[in-house]
Amino acid sequence: MTAAPLHMAGERLMLDPAGAVYWPARRMLIAADLHLEKGTAFARRGMLLPPYDTALTLDRLALLRRRYAPAMLVALGDSFHDRAAALRLNPADRARLLRIAEGLDLVWITGNHDPDPPETLPGRSCDELACEPFTLRHIPRDGVCTDPEMAGHLHPKAQVQTRGQTISRPCFIADDTRMILPAFGTYTGGLDVRDPAIAGLYPRGAQLFLLGRDRVFAFRTAPAPRARMRQA
Protein backbone atom coordinates (compact mmCIF):
# COMPACT_ATOMS: atom_id res chain seq x y z
CA MET A 1 0.00 0.00 0.00
CA THR A 2 1.69 3.20 -1.17
CA ALA A 3 0.31 6.68 -0.65
CA ALA A 4 1.25 9.28 -3.24
CA PRO A 5 2.70 12.62 -2.12
CA LEU A 6 1.10 15.73 -3.55
CA HIS A 7 2.45 19.23 -3.01
CA MET A 8 -0.27 21.78 -2.85
CA ALA A 9 -0.38 25.30 -1.44
CA GLY A 10 3.06 24.72 0.01
CA GLU A 11 1.98 21.66 1.96
CA ARG A 12 2.78 18.00 1.44
CA LEU A 13 -0.30 15.77 1.40
CA MET A 14 -0.36 11.98 1.15
CA LEU A 15 -3.10 10.54 -1.08
CA ASP A 16 -3.98 7.10 0.21
CA PRO A 17 -5.34 4.57 -2.29
CA ALA A 18 -8.15 3.84 0.18
CA GLY A 19 -9.50 7.27 -0.76
CA ALA A 20 -8.40 9.50 2.14
CA VAL A 21 -5.84 12.30 2.55
CA TYR A 22 -3.19 12.23 5.26
CA TRP A 23 -1.59 15.59 6.06
CA PRO A 24 1.63 14.74 7.94
CA ALA A 25 2.45 18.26 9.13
CA ARG A 26 -0.85 18.37 11.00
CA ARG A 27 -1.06 14.64 11.71
CA MET A 28 -4.51 14.93 10.19
CA LEU A 29 -6.51 12.23 8.39
CA ILE A 30 -9.30 13.46 6.09
CA ALA A 31 -12.07 11.38 4.51
CA ALA A 32 -15.15 12.61 2.66
CA ASP A 33 -18.67 11.32 2.15
CA LEU A 34 -18.76 8.25 4.40
CA HIS A 35 -22.53 7.98 3.90
CA LEU A 36 -22.87 5.70 6.93
CA GLU A 37 -26.15 3.75 7.10
CA LYS A 38 -26.88 4.18 3.41
CA GLY A 39 -27.84 0.48 3.31
CA THR A 40 -30.54 0.89 5.96
CA ALA A 41 -31.74 4.08 4.28
CA PHE A 42 -32.32 2.11 1.09
CA ALA A 43 -33.95 -0.72 3.01
CA ARG A 44 -36.54 1.72 4.27
CA ARG A 45 -37.36 2.43 0.65
CA GLY A 46 -37.71 -1.25 -0.17
CA MET A 47 -34.25 -2.05 -1.48
CA LEU A 48 -32.75 -4.60 0.84
CA LEU A 49 -29.07 -4.15 0.06
CA PRO A 50 -26.45 -6.30 1.79
CA PRO A 51 -26.41 -4.82 5.31
CA TYR A 52 -22.64 -4.58 5.66
CA ASP A 53 -21.80 -1.16 4.27
CA THR A 54 -21.40 0.72 7.56
CA ALA A 55 -19.16 -1.99 9.03
CA LEU A 56 -17.00 -2.08 5.90
CA THR A 57 -16.64 1.70 5.75
CA LEU A 58 -15.66 1.90 9.41
CA ASP A 59 -13.25 -1.03 9.12
CA ARG A 60 -11.47 0.71 6.26
CA LEU A 61 -11.32 3.88 8.30
CA ALA A 62 -9.97 1.96 11.29
CA LEU A 63 -7.23 0.54 9.09
CA LEU A 64 -6.18 4.05 8.06
CA ARG A 65 -6.16 5.12 11.66
CA ARG A 66 -3.77 2.30 12.47
CA ARG A 67 -1.62 3.11 9.44
CA TYR A 68 -1.15 6.81 10.13
CA ALA A 69 -1.90 7.15 13.86
CA PRO A 70 -3.35 10.64 13.29
CA ALA A 71 -3.95 13.16 16.03
CA MET A 72 -7.00 14.48 14.20
CA LEU A 73 -9.65 12.88 12.03
CA VAL A 74 -11.82 15.09 9.81
CA ALA A 75 -14.95 13.70 8.19
CA LEU A 76 -15.61 16.06 5.33
CA GLY A 77 -19.42 16.02 5.39
CA ASP A 78 -22.16 13.62 4.35
CA SER A 79 -20.70 11.31 6.96
CA PHE A 80 -24.22 10.03 7.61
CA HIS A 81 -26.56 9.25 4.78
CA ASP A 82 -29.50 11.06 6.40
CA ARG A 83 -30.48 12.92 9.54
CA ALA A 84 -31.58 9.79 11.38
CA ALA A 85 -28.64 7.66 10.28
CA ALA A 86 -26.53 8.14 13.43
CA LEU A 87 -29.43 6.80 15.50
CA ARG A 88 -29.70 3.69 13.33
CA LEU A 89 -26.12 2.53 13.95
CA ASN A 90 -26.29 -0.98 15.32
CA PRO A 91 -24.38 -1.67 18.55
CA ALA A 92 -21.45 -3.35 16.81
CA ASP A 93 -20.97 -0.51 14.33
CA ARG A 94 -21.35 2.03 17.09
CA ALA A 95 -18.57 0.30 19.00
CA ARG A 96 -16.41 0.38 15.84
CA LEU A 97 -16.93 4.12 15.59
CA LEU A 98 -16.12 4.69 19.26
CA ARG A 99 -12.87 2.75 18.91
CA ILE A 100 -11.85 4.90 15.94
CA ALA A 101 -12.68 8.13 17.80
CA GLU A 102 -10.84 7.16 20.95
CA GLY A 103 -7.92 9.41 21.76
CA LEU A 104 -8.06 11.69 18.77
CA ASP A 105 -9.68 14.96 17.83
CA LEU A 106 -12.66 13.97 15.68
CA VAL A 107 -14.33 16.68 13.60
CA TRP A 108 -17.62 16.16 11.80
CA ILE A 109 -17.98 18.79 9.10
CA THR A 110 -21.64 19.09 8.26
CA GLY A 111 -22.91 18.18 4.82
CA ASN A 112 -26.13 18.42 2.89
CA HIS A 113 -27.09 14.89 3.98
CA ASP A 114 -26.18 15.50 7.62
CA PRO A 115 -26.71 19.20 8.34
CA ASP A 116 -26.97 18.61 12.10
CA PRO A 117 -24.15 17.45 14.37
CA PRO A 118 -24.49 13.73 15.17
CA GLU A 119 -25.97 13.37 18.60
CA THR A 120 -24.75 10.78 21.08
CA LEU A 121 -21.48 10.33 19.23
CA PRO A 122 -18.04 11.62 20.14
CA GLY A 123 -16.42 14.46 18.23
CA ARG A 124 -17.12 18.08 17.54
CA SER A 125 -19.01 19.51 14.63
CA CYS A 126 -18.67 22.56 12.40
CA ASP A 127 -19.64 23.83 8.95
CA GLU A 128 -16.09 24.66 7.94
CA LEU A 129 -12.68 24.07 9.42
CA ALA A 130 -9.87 26.54 8.82
CA CYS A 131 -6.45 24.87 8.86
CA GLU A 132 -3.90 27.18 7.37
CA PRO A 133 -3.50 27.34 4.43
CA PHE A 134 -6.60 25.24 3.71
CA THR A 135 -10.24 25.58 4.45
CA LEU A 136 -11.97 22.21 4.82
CA ARG A 137 -15.62 22.21 3.81
CA HIS A 138 -18.18 19.83 2.35
CA ILE A 139 -19.31 21.63 -0.79
CA PRO A 140 -16.57 23.27 -2.83
CA ARG A 141 -16.95 26.99 -3.47
CA ASP A 142 -18.31 28.09 -6.83
CA GLY A 143 -15.93 29.25 -9.50
CA VAL A 144 -12.18 29.67 -9.43
CA CYS A 145 -10.64 29.03 -6.06
CA THR A 146 -8.24 31.60 -4.65
CA ASP A 147 -8.03 30.41 -1.06
CA PRO A 148 -6.93 26.78 -0.96
CA GLU A 149 -9.68 24.35 -0.02
CA MET A 150 -10.36 20.66 0.45
CA ALA A 151 -13.87 19.43 -0.19
CA GLY A 152 -16.03 16.42 -0.92
CA HIS A 153 -19.66 16.25 -1.98
CA LEU A 154 -19.12 15.59 -5.69
CA HIS A 155 -17.86 11.98 -5.50
CA PRO A 156 -15.42 12.37 -8.40
CA LYS A 157 -14.61 9.37 -10.53
CA ALA A 158 -12.71 9.14 -13.79
CA GLN A 159 -12.42 6.82 -16.71
CA VAL A 160 -9.33 5.72 -18.55
CA GLN A 161 -9.19 4.02 -21.94
CA THR A 162 -6.76 1.18 -22.09
CA ARG A 163 -6.53 -1.45 -24.77
CA GLY A 164 -10.08 -1.11 -25.86
CA GLN A 165 -11.56 -1.25 -22.40
CA THR A 166 -12.72 1.52 -20.16
CA ILE A 167 -11.68 1.43 -16.54
CA SER A 168 -13.64 3.61 -14.17
CA ARG A 169 -12.41 4.42 -10.65
CA PRO A 170 -13.13 6.94 -7.91
CA CYS A 171 -10.40 9.59 -7.83
CA PHE A 172 -8.91 12.62 -6.15
CA ILE A 173 -9.02 15.68 -8.37
CA ALA A 174 -6.77 18.64 -7.62
CA ASP A 175 -5.15 21.75 -9.01
CA ASP A 176 -2.94 24.26 -7.19
CA THR A 177 -5.65 25.44 -4.86
CA ARG A 178 -8.51 22.96 -4.75
CA MET A 179 -8.68 19.30 -3.85
CA ILE A 180 -11.86 17.27 -4.06
CA LEU A 181 -11.74 13.90 -2.35
CA PRO A 182 -13.42 10.76 -3.61
CA ALA A 183 -16.34 9.44 -1.60
CA PHE A 184 -15.10 7.06 1.08
CA GLY A 185 -18.37 5.25 1.84
CA THR A 186 -18.77 1.67 0.66
CA TYR A 187 -22.00 2.17 -1.32
CA THR A 188 -21.18 5.57 -2.76
CA GLY A 189 -21.28 5.99 -6.52
CA GLY A 190 -19.37 8.57 -8.48
CA LEU A 191 -19.77 11.49 -10.83
CA ASP A 192 -17.57 11.66 -13.92
CA VAL A 193 -14.96 14.41 -13.64
CA ARG A 194 -16.00 15.63 -17.08
CA ASP A 195 -19.44 16.51 -15.79
CA PRO A 196 -19.84 20.29 -15.77
CA ALA A 197 -20.41 20.17 -12.00
CA ILE A 198 -16.78 19.11 -11.57
CA ALA A 199 -15.10 20.19 -14.79
CA GLY A 200 -16.45 23.72 -14.27
CA LEU A 201 -14.38 23.98 -11.09
CA TYR A 202 -11.17 23.25 -12.99
CA PRO A 203 -11.23 25.40 -16.12
CA ARG A 204 -7.45 25.08 -16.49
CA GLY A 205 -7.44 21.33 -16.06
CA ALA A 206 -6.50 19.25 -13.05
CA GLN A 207 -4.56 16.28 -11.83
CA LEU A 208 -6.41 13.04 -11.24
CA PHE A 209 -5.39 10.27 -8.89
CA LEU A 210 -7.41 7.14 -9.54
CA LEU A 211 -7.74 4.71 -6.65
CA GLY A 212 -6.02 1.38 -7.22
CA ARG A 213 -5.69 -1.66 -5.05
CA ASP A 214 -2.26 -0.78 -3.68
CA ARG A 215 -1.47 2.65 -5.13
CA VAL A 216 -3.04 5.59 -6.91
CA PHE A 217 -2.67 6.15 -10.65
CA ALA A 218 -1.92 9.68 -11.83
CA PHE A 219 -3.54 11.21 -14.90
CA ARG A 220 -4.54 14.70 -15.98
CA THR A 221 -7.71 16.24 -17.24
CA ALA A 222 -7.09 18.97 -19.74
CA PRO A 223 -8.92 22.06 -20.81
CA ALA A 224 -7.37 21.74 -24.27
CA PRO A 225 -7.01 18.47 -26.25
CA ARG A 226 -6.54 15.82 -23.66
CA ALA A 227 -3.96 13.08 -23.70
CA ARG A 228 -5.83 9.91 -24.32
CA MET A 229 -5.13 6.30 -24.93
CA ARG A 230 -6.38 4.86 -28.15
CA GLN A 231 -6.63 1.16 -28.56
CA ALA A 232 -3.15 -0.33 -28.86
Binding site: V160, T162, R163, G164, I167, F217, F219, Q231
Partner: peptide
Amino acid sequence: RIAHGAGEEDLLAEAE
Protein backbone atom coordinates in the same frame (compact mmCIF):
# COMPACT_ATOMS: atom_id res chain seq x y z
CA ARG B 1 -10.02 -6.04 -27.02
CA ILE B 2 -7.97 -8.21 -24.75
CA ALA B 3 -10.40 -8.23 -21.94
CA HIS B 4 -9.44 -11.16 -19.83
CA GLY B 5 -5.69 -11.16 -20.14
CA ALA B 6 -4.31 -8.51 -17.87
CA GLY B 7 -5.92 -7.24 -14.69
CA GLU B 8 -7.32 -3.74 -14.43
CA GLU B 9 -4.49 -2.66 -12.16
CA ASP B 10 -1.89 -3.66 -14.76
CA LEU B 11 -3.78 -1.86 -17.50
CA LEU B 12 -4.04 1.31 -15.43
CA ALA B 13 -0.33 1.22 -14.65
CA GLU B 14 0.45 0.72 -18.30
CA ALA B 15 -1.75 3.63 -19.36
CA GLU B 16 -0.25 5.89 -16.71
